[in-house]
Design a protein around this nucleic acid. Structure first.
Length: 888
RNA sequence: GCGGACGUGGCGGAACCGGUAGACGCAACAGACUUAAAAUCUGUCGAGGGUAACCUCGUGGGGGUUCAAGUCCCCCCGUCCGCACCA
């Protein structure tokens, strides 16, 4: 029996699939459609093992759904704009386009080696002008529809990458790519009105439109959108004449706790508040205070440590309900980006206000009495009271609960025309301008006469200039000698191109739609996009829970608004897969990180492969280049083949959890492949000798047939529920049963010259095979096996299918059906408990009634021993599960 | 601080609606084959006790509900993730 050779077999089938165009798809209205998509890769250089896991999962779904009769779309492309290309240009002088397209060529080849069922005819890169021209069109349409605008605002500035970042791209106060602390700058930027859809983006999380999404992702988005209801109101100044010009009306604040208005003891405004800026013009100390706040940093640690600090202005406001006067402070803990950038301080019932009031010796009047406390004696004990209770010391609110008082206070303020109940959102509009070269140019022209003017459709695409200077940081487009100089399309005068490019998250916000439909003259053909969308199954990393997934949801709504799509939600079902992790290795002496392949791991120690010096085994972590705990997919494919890598990536760990890459794991997968091949190659041509449509007489309920159908039912159910590890366990079980069967065949099924021991005599064939029925069962089993493994290890499956004599390609073969009659057992084994402890087991007919089961249980020898001398009080029979006898 | 998820053998993990805990794989050990090794095949494999049949304990800890709890409820411990001066 020849050993399976993936190095020959895998390329052979890849070529056959390509030749047969097995995975190319059109909008076939006669079939139900299924769109499966994995988050497309950034062409960073080479495929890593995490990609293998991600795409193997999508491939299982794609191949399975195709076998189930769906018209499957499974495309692939490249998220190709971005900083690394520009960094490479700075470091090596290689042009970003050259670097990117070179990487794409390498990675495409690697993906093809994995044997993915992808429609390569639809491939594109987001840096292709044929793609981004439509992105520019979409932007112009959004602009016209009021979904894009330009304004000057405080932005997150990444000093290392020298570009603006969206709020979503600032992690712990640091740039998501560079890790540098983000600074605040005032710049004119393009924004997309994602806040227009805040309500609907939030509502869809709960109303069933995203029932196919994991709860944790929905929760993260919900928190991110951050809806809170409250009161926005004005505190008029005590002396309006003292206020600077333009600010005489007072201070506009937002609060979620208007019930505590009587507990107010100060007003605080943000250092970034316009009033602060105005006051600072004439107050040097205040200007210094503001500057200090700006430099304090916004990182998690900085905030944690930052003391509540304030600057007392000369202004005072009144109070809406009594004649109190409240001092106005500029306070470092008030954010301009939320609410109105101003608050009223209620120290008794808010931790921050309490800290602040304590420090500046302000009054702390309590207005919420905890349930059960005595108003006469209760005091705050060194900390504010945040919980529920009854309002007191509050005039018309006295005696109300917190929630009733909130409603009453809002009503009163609305009557007084000082404010109104409002909804505040944490979500801000999406700033999309980036000061970079390697991105999609924003199609706008600045004209001194006409202002900002859209680039006319006929002039699209605005393409990047090929020549650019990457030798110094900053935006190469801005310092390009000629590119930005164009005439104004409106007045014909001198104009300047917008030199910012789009945030690359725009590129990935609609690529799934372009995969579905690729007309030349518009972003998508609506009818075709309607056929394919939404994506039925989207698969990717949890790290995109907010950024990409929220932007794509917004973009889909925006594209619907301007008439390109009919759906709100782009992804009907989302699966977030875990990472691939690996142990880390460090030279014990030098502390240098080592590649796994340069380390020899023995029982309890590890050493260097080159000089034998000791190696410290570190934590099991996400694979990263810096820690060198990476394994190359090519190396694996070289040794064991793509199938083994795919199989291992899907076995053992549940798909949503992290999986640890181990050498023994791949070896296990390799072993499995050979075991399957052994079973199959012992029966060449068997499918040509039998008619699987017709059950052979007498072959109705053998153990093998039951195992076959149990495997079909189990694997089907497991794939449907994304339990690939369990599907694989069932295939092992099935194979174990299949292997236990004695070799049945005495001939070669008409195929000569096969020299297996299985064919050579009757000695190893003692059992029932006289009428050939069991050969039929074996044929059925091997046919099912080939098809069940096809989504996971497609190359081996094709080789098996061909060897067995199946028709055509297994990737075109229908998914096997489980026969319910074979899933039902005639006899079942039931455990019998006495007082909740398992004491014996009985075998009864599956259809036995409770009484018969009870009798069988009570007459079991082991059970009898345990109830001897006791009285049976009760017998609980749970049909087909268990019997419990209560006795004492 | 707020919100969420999770905790099962040496390891990855199974266990559906509460119903025989540990499927399947890895590692380990023993045996067969081999001059030998690898590969392959067979067997053992939660802990303790017993020659054995079998018994006791066991799903992070403590309590509860139930004929029956890994699963449900309460309290605690631990790990991981998200958000974070959001008024």
């Amino acid at each position: 029996m020849s050993r399976y050779n993936p190095k020959e077999v895998e390329p052979k089938w890849q070529q056959r699939w390509t030749d047969a165009r097995s995975f190319e798809t059109g909008a076939d209205k006669d079939k139900p459609k299924y769109y499966v998509l994995e988050m497309f890769p950034y062409p960073s250089g080479r495929i890593h093992i995490g990609h293998v896991r991600n795409y193997a999962m999508g491939d299982v779904i794609a191949r399975y759904k195709k076998a189930c009769g769906y018209n499957v779309l499974h495309p692939m492309g490249w998220d190709a704009f971005g900083m690394p290309a520009e960094n490479a240009a700075m470091q090596t002088g290689s042009h970003p386009a050259k670097w990117t397209y070179g990487n794409i060529d390498i990675m495409r080849g690697q993906l093809k080696q994995m044997g993915l069922a992808i429609d390569w005819a639809r491939e594109f890169a987001t840096c292709d002008p044929e793609y981004y021209v439509h992105q520019q069109r979409l932007f112009l349409e959004f602009w016209e529809a009021g979904l894009a605008y330009r304004k000057e605002s405080l932005v997150n500035w990444d000093p290392v990458d020298q570009t603006v970042l969206a709020n979503e791209q600032v992690i712990d106060g640091k740039g998501w790519r560079s890790g540098a602390p983000v600074e605040r700058r005032k710049l004119s930027q393009w924004f997309l009105k994602i806040t227009d859809y805040a309500e609907d983006l939030l509502a869809a999380l709960d109303d069933g439109r995203l029932s196919g999404w994991p709860d944790n992702v929905k929760l993260m988005q919900k928190n991110w959108i951050g809806k809170s209801k409250g009161l926005q109101m004005r505190f008029p100044f005590a002396d309006a004449a003292a206020a600077p010009k333009g600010f005489e009306d007072g201070v506009e604040i937002f609060t979620t706790r208007p019930d505590t208005l009587f507990g107010a003891s100060f007003i605080a405004i943000s250092p970034d508040h316009p009033l602060t800026a105005k006051l600072a013009e004439t107050d040097k100390d205040l200007a210094a205070f503001v500057a200090e706040c700006a430099s304090a940093g916004t990182s998690e640690e900085a905030i944690e440590k930052a003391e509540k600090r304030g600057y007392k202005t000369a202004l005072e406001t009144g109070h809406p309900f009594d004649d109190r006067k409240l001092p106005v402070y500029v306070a470092n803990f008030v954010l301009m980006g939320y609410g109105t950038g101003a608050i009223f301080g209620c120290p008794a019932h808010d931790q921050r206000d309490y800290d602040f009031a304590t420090k500046y010796d302000l009054a702390i009047p309590p207005v919420v009495l905890p349930d059960g406390a005595d108003a006469a004696t209760w005091t705050l004990e060194g900390e504010p009271y945040i919980g529920p209770g009854e309002i007191f010391n509050s005039d018309f609110l006295n005696g109300l609960s917190v929630s009733d008082a909130i409603a009453a206070a809002i009503k009163k303020i609305e009557q007084m025309e000082l404010g109104e109940g409002v909804t505040q959102w944490r979500l801000r509009d999406w700033g999309v301008s980036r000061q970079r070269y390697w991105g999609c140019p924003i199609p706008a022209i600045h004209c001194d006469t006409c202002g900002i003017v859209p680039v006319p459709q006929k002039d699209l695409p605005v393409v990047l200039p090929e020549e650019a200077d990457f030798s110094v940081p900053g935006n190469p487009l801005d310092r390009h000698p000629t590119w930005k100089h164009v005439d104004c399309p409106k007045c014909g005068g001198k104009g300047r191109r917008e030199t910012d490019t789009f945030d690359t998250f725009i590129d990935s916000s609609w690529y799934f739609a372009r995969f579905a439909s690729q007309p030349e003259d518009k972003p998508v053909d609506k009818e075709v996009a309607d056929y394919w969308l939404p994506v039925d199954q989207y698969i990717g990393g949890i790290e995109h829970a907010i950024l990409h997934l929220l932007y794509a949801r917004f973009f889909t709504r925006a594209m619907k608004k301007v008439g390109h799509l009919s759906v709100d939600e782009p992804f009907a079902n989302l699966f977030t897969q875990g990472m691939v992790v690996h142990a880390t290795f460090k030279d014990a002496e030098t502390g240098e990180w080592l590649l796994p392949e340069d380390v020899i791991v023995e029982k309890d120690a590890a050493k260097r492969a080159d000089n034998g010096k000791p190696v410290k085994i570190g934590a099991i972590e996400k694979m990263s280049k810096s820690k060198k705990n990476v394994v190359s997919p090519e190396g694996i494919a070289e040794t064991y083949g793509a199938d083994a890598a795919r199989w291992f990536m899907l076995s053992d760990s549940p798909p949503e959890r992290d999986v640890e890459w181990t050498d023994s794991g791949v070896e296990g997968a390799w072993k499995l492949i050979n075991r399957i091949w052994d079973a199959v190659s012992a029966a060449p041509g068997i499918l040509k000798t039998v008619d699987l449509e017709k059950t052979a007489a007498g072959d109705d309920k053998t153990e093998l047939r039951q195992a076959t159908h149990a495997a079909i039912a189990g694997v089907t159910d497991d794939i449907d529920h994304f339990r690939f590890n369990k599907a694989i366990a069932r295939i092992y079980e099935f194979l174990n049963t299949l292997k236990k069967e004695p070799p049945l065949m005495t001939g070669g099924y008409g195929m000569a010259a096969h020299s297996s021991a299985a064919y050579s005599g009757t000695a190893i064939n003692p059992q029932p095979n006289k009428n050939g029925n069991s050969e039929w069962a074996r044929a059925e089993a091997l046919s099912a096996l080939s098809r069940l493994i096809a989504p996971f290890i497609p190359h081996l499956a094709e080789e098996c299918w061909e060897t067995l004599g199946g028709d055509g390609l297994v990737c075109d073969a229908p998914w096997p059906n489980a026969d319910p009659a074979l899933l039902a057992k005639d006899e079942i084994v039931l455990g019998v408990q006495v007082n909740g402890k398992r004491r014996g087991e009985i075998t009864v007919p599956a259809e036995a009634d409770n009484k018969a089961v009870e009798e069988a249980a009570l007459s079991d020898e082991a059970v009898k021993r345990h109830i001897d001398g006791k009285t049976v009080r009760k017998v609980v029979v749970v049909p087909k599960r268990i019997v419990n006898i209560v006795a004492n």
